[in-house]
Design a binder for these strands. Structure first.
Lengths: 244, 244
DNA sequence: TGCGCAATCATTGTATACAATTTATCTGAA
DNA sequence: TTCAGATAAATTGTATACAATGATTGCGCA
């Protein structure tokens, strides 16, 4: 179709060389929910799959861990990150702090070329949805936010938003309630409309509401399934079976 | 004196093991301006100094590069990062977006223990200033902001602020104008006062102004010293000596 | 004398070998 | 049968050896 179809992932090239390719493949797989949170990422296995040495695999895993996509446990290995409910809330609080203002800045700097690019992006999202390619649709949906942050032309903040969007993908994988990603499409259309009208106030407000909507579709109620408290739940606090 | 005197650096343990120690030593040295921006960080040299293999040095350098303290140039080596004026502006725009609201949140969660801790911190800053230990004073000054972000109890945002403070240290090393860090002390005192009064509005406003003050003490005017334009400056635009 | 080129040197990037730790399996006794 | 302990296998952490790239120096030529 267009350049968005197989576009490389969004993590900017903090690292280069072969490990960058491994980072790209892994992060794309995580963003498309082909790798579920908690999945073990064995070094030998990855070096075998990608036909590179463990050295570059380890470098890639370290990079991914810095971006919050992978969790490294010493002497235990690498796992696809599994954000807790608390972390999920924090991520969207941070996004609420950064993205509305960024949408405003983007509006002020928006050019015709930018608008065309965003329009093509939404088309690609729509396409993926229509073909029921949910993973790809989700990845593109996140990338839309990143495109906006880049238009705002604040590399530092854009970097933060990239990290937050990446973690949001994991959060959605874990805590998504409904199957309807329809609202996404509508919200993105509305944003594009505000951009094309040059209405910065509206863009800021729409982004703010959009983020609230996303959180609303998540189930972030405090769950019981914490292994530590299991004994307490069954036996009451300070049971003799649990030591200090 | 107290635990703040030789406290470990603030980068939270994303990595563990020997490389964490290398990261700690290097980042502290950078924060205290003992390592100037642009300094080459040779792998062999570092592995010799810290008595570890190049493997762990490389891991440490990669971690530092992700935190923005070190710049990795492929096949060229690692250098202490040298933020441009543009990046400097971006960093403080990001801080302006995050820190005032964080100061508000911190106020709302502030306990007596937190207040005592911040008070001790300011004392340590004052001490370092009095002894003319400028590097240490600067590091503690940045750490004050990080302490506040931790009190706000938003790990994700706190992580961003840590990165921004780290880069701010480099920015100050490059673009500081006056020698007077006095304003810092006063501003921190005023913030502590707002915290102890539980005045969230005031804390937010003070933090906002404090950040503006810091930027004011920097010289972020567009400079000529770009090597590319040197020829143009001396010979006029599109001189035959420079090729496209 | 000044410039361009080439060979040498130094440094970084990658792969592999070894050490340390964790996990799984097996044996044996209660 | 079940649990504990010990041994074996698998995996990760670290060090070192080799390859590739970039910087430097010296030579030759104009």
């Amino acid at each position: 179709m267009n350049h968005l179809s197989e576009s490389p992932p969004f993590i900017q090239p903090t690292i280069t060389g072969p490990s960058a390719a491994v980072v790209a493949r892994l992060s794309q797989a995580i963003h498309e929910h082909r790798l579920a949170p908690g999945t073990k990422l064995g070094e030998d296995e990855l070096s075998d799959v990608f036909d590179v040495s463990r050295t570059v695999v380890r470098s890639a895993l370290q990079a991914l861990s810095h971006d919050g996509l992978v969790e490294l446990k010493r002497n235990r290995g690498a796992f696809v990150a599994k954000p807790t409910i608390r972390e999920a809330r924090e991520v969207f609080e941070a996004r609420a702090l950064l993205e509305p203002r960024t949408a405003r800045s983007a509006t002020e700097r928006m050019t015709r070329a930018h608008l065309d690019r965003l329009h093509a992006h939404i088309e690609a999202e729509h396409d993926a949805m229509a073909r029921a390619e949910h993973g790809k649709a989700l990845r593109l949906s996140g990338q839309f936010h990143i495109e906006i942050s880049h238009i705002a032309d604040q590399a530092t903040i854009a970097g933060f938003i990239e990290r937050l969007v990446a973690r949001s993908s994991l959060i959605i994988a874990l805590y998504w309630q409904r199957q309807s990603a329809m609202c996404e499409k509508h919200a993105h259309h509305a944003l594009l409309d505000a951009f094309s009208r040059g209405d910065a106030d509206d863009a800021e407000e729409l982004m703010k509401n959009h983020l609230v909507d996303i959180v609303t579709t998540l189930d972030l109620r405090d769950p019981a399934p914490r292994e530590i408290s299991l004994g307490e739940i069954l036996l009451g606090p300070s049971s003799p079976g649990e030591k200090g």
